[in-house]
């Protein structure tokens, strides 16, 4: 294992200290339990947005804490759900009297820990709602599994709901908006190489020199199929077709196209993917009116990408364009 670390079991703590030192203007980092909280929290009268999950997906979620996006993030150990005491502390820290929304990715551990935290928060008199994001079309047969995984749409939901909360929309309105984003977003990912969890020290899965995994999860969970390496245009088609068929996206739709890097793939290649995606969607009569390209929901050093499409309307477009100021996403009005 070659990594820029000091001690495998100190990676998360040392990175949190780094975040605290780098972004003190935006966030405060609390330890034991570990939470990253917007520096000016709680914002009175504003719905507080809390998300969280295992570490190793940076900048998600800690890099999205700040005005216009999340109020707090709960980082777990690498690829391990955070615990309810973290989520409860975060919930209390961001409660400005208008309630708190938990944005939860659909993994069994994340969902149950957030449910416990919501129960604990409510028992302390805080109004808490939770929305579970489950946008990964690689996972099928939802009746007999824990359901679809939450991936790229999470980033878009955090941005869009963050903007709505800044407008002082109510808790039920922001939660409804979050469900709308989830209902209109679909994703699928692929891996060129495995990732290495620091504490494990070896690749999570083995992939041959000329093989790729289509439908990979963000923790290296197996996908739909393992196939031979192919040109980017073919891979883009393999990822995009199931996304288009699932919602379905149709001729005349306007979409936000999010080409996400898994951590080990250069931006140059992500733009190659974007070019192929733009052409493919054009052939289907679908117009990309907004885009996001870069590593935003990563899987340590995994090479690969994911594609997320979100069907846009005027409301979602307006909220996407609203100003945001976080370490990971930042633009002015």
């Amino acid at each position: 294992m070659k990594k820029l670390i000091n001690k495998p079991d100190a990676v998360v703590t040392e990175a949190l200290h780094g975040i605290a030192a780098a972004h003190a203007d935006l966030v405060n980092v609390h330890f034991n339990p570990n939470i990253i909280v917007r520096a000016d929290a709680p914002v009175q009268g504003k719905v507080g947005l809390v998300s969280g999950g295992g570490s190793g997906h940076e900048p998600m979620h800690g890099g999205f804490v700040g005005p216009g996006m999340l109020d707090a993030a709960c980082p777990g150990e690498v690829f391990t759900s955070p615990t309810p005491d973290q989520m409860l502390d975060a919930t209390k820290a961001v409660n400005g009297g208008a309630g708190v929304l938990h944005i939860v990715k659909n993994y069994t551990g994340d969902v149950m820990n957030f449910e416990m935290a919501a129960d604990l928060g409510q028992s302390e008199g805080i109004e808490v709602e939770a929305v579970v994001i489950d946008d990964d079309v690689a996972v099928q047969d939802s009746l007999y599994t824990a359901g679809r995984r939450g991936v790229g749409t999470t980033v878009l939901a955090e941005k869009i709901c963050g903007a709505a909360a800044e407008e002082r929309q109510s808790l039920s309105e922001v939660a409804e908006l979050c469900r709308k984003v989830n209902a209109n977003g679909r994703s699928m990912g692929m891996a060129l190489t495995s990732c290495i969890v620091p504490a494990a020290g070896k690749p999570t899965f083995d992939l041959g020199e000329d093989e790729i995994e289509i439908g990979i999860g963000i923790h290296g969970e197996p996908g739909r199929e393992r196939v031979k390496l192919a040109p980017a245009a073919e891979i883009v088609e393999r990822l995009t077709r199931p996304i288009l068929e699932d919602l379905p996206f149709e001729k005349g739709d306007q979409v936000l196209a999010f080409v996400n890097g898994m951590g080990g793939t250069p931006l140059l290649e992500l733009y190659v993917v974007y070019n192929d995606l733009n052409r493919l969607l054009g052939e289907h009569g679908i117009t990309i009116t907004r885009n996001l390209i870069g590593p935003y929901i990563t899987s340590l050093e995994m090479a690969g990408c994911s594609i997320t499409l979100l069907k846009l309307d005027d409301e979602l477009t307006r909220l996407w364009d609203a100003p945001v100021k976080t370490a990971g996403l930042r633009w002015a009005a």
Binding site: T83, G109, M116
Partner: peptide
Amino acid sequence: VSTVGGAGGPLYG
């Protein structure tokens, strides 16, 4: 609940 994490923490907790 505060030390196990994953799904086991909430369930055994």
